[in-house]
Design a protein around this nucleic acid. Structure first.
Lengths: 147, 147
DNA sequence: CTCCGTGCAAAAGGTTTGCACTGGT
DNA sequence: ACCAGTGCAAACCTTTTGCACGGAG
């Protein structure tokens, strides 16, 4: 992400914090900057490494807590649920609806979605076996819990 | 999955084993059956629970090893990489190409894929926020490693 | 008979939690 | 000054590994 964009996102973050009355700490600024500056989908540990040069005493615990907070604020995304791996006995092409709160996954069969054509020449040399569409949102149970 | 289908998949599995000279053990049959019988994308631990009533002394270690073997054989799928969570600073709609071997994730921007319409009435009461398409395959590095 | 598959126990990640302290507002 | 944010250490959960045994081919 280019510097100008990173700066814009940082300002956006600070404004969001002011709106919600959340303190803007050095740690949060530095961690957010680290996530925005890379486009390789870093792990918590990679962020930890990256941040060391700015705040050497920053702890992993804080990384985890701050990243969580950012995901809740909606300013970054978690690419997949942490916790146990899940397995699927269905091996035909199909799609999923995932609850971002509890991790529940339900199958979605849809003919239209089965026939997407992979964009030519954008796949960076990957040999593609298959694809699947993931809809993300909130399941009925978690909707109730939020009310 | 209906019983007939489960039985068919089991036969398919046994034939595959015979082709490859792999022993068909009781453990593998029972674990495969357990995965095929449910459509809720179980974790290794849930399979462990389910299998207890058939072979009480079956260990978690075996569950993990057998599930791995099944994924390699291509008769079941792992729904997401195990290991560390990954974070993404990009929050606009975009898509991913994922290497099933090393877990590398690269971004894919494609206008056509940005305009899919969620199928009406199939979303089981989920409130959908967004979606993304995931292409899965083998990255250039892992292709080299395989040669 | 020979191996591969299995079980147990221990180690290895990765993440979360309890508690005391620090630092933003 | 108050309360949320932070750091440390320990707990926790999931997965992997080393080694010895037993059953499948």
């Amino acid at each position: 992400m280019q510097d100008g964009m990173v700066a814009a996102r940082l300002r956006e973050f600070e404004e969001l914090c002011r709106q919600k009355g959340l303190p803007v700490t050095m740690q949060r600024r530095v961690i957010l900057e680290a996530v925005l500056q890379r486009d390789d989908h870093p792990t918590a540990d990679q962020i930890y490494e990256a941040v060391q040069e700015h705040i050497p005493q920053l702890s992993r615990t804080t990384i985890y807590r701050v990243l969580d907070a950012f995901v809740d604020l909606g300013i970054i995304r978690r690419l997949h649920q942490t916790g146990a791996a899940r397995f699927d006995g269905k091996i035909n092409r199909h799609h999923h609806v995932v609850c971002v709160h509890c991790g529940k996954i339900v199958d979605l069969e849809d003919r239209n979605l089965d026939q997407l054509s992979p964009p030519k020449g954008k796949l960076q040399g990957f040999k593609i076996d298959d694809y699947s569409v993931q809809f993300s949102g909130t399941c009925p149970d978690c909707q109730k819990r939020q009310e």
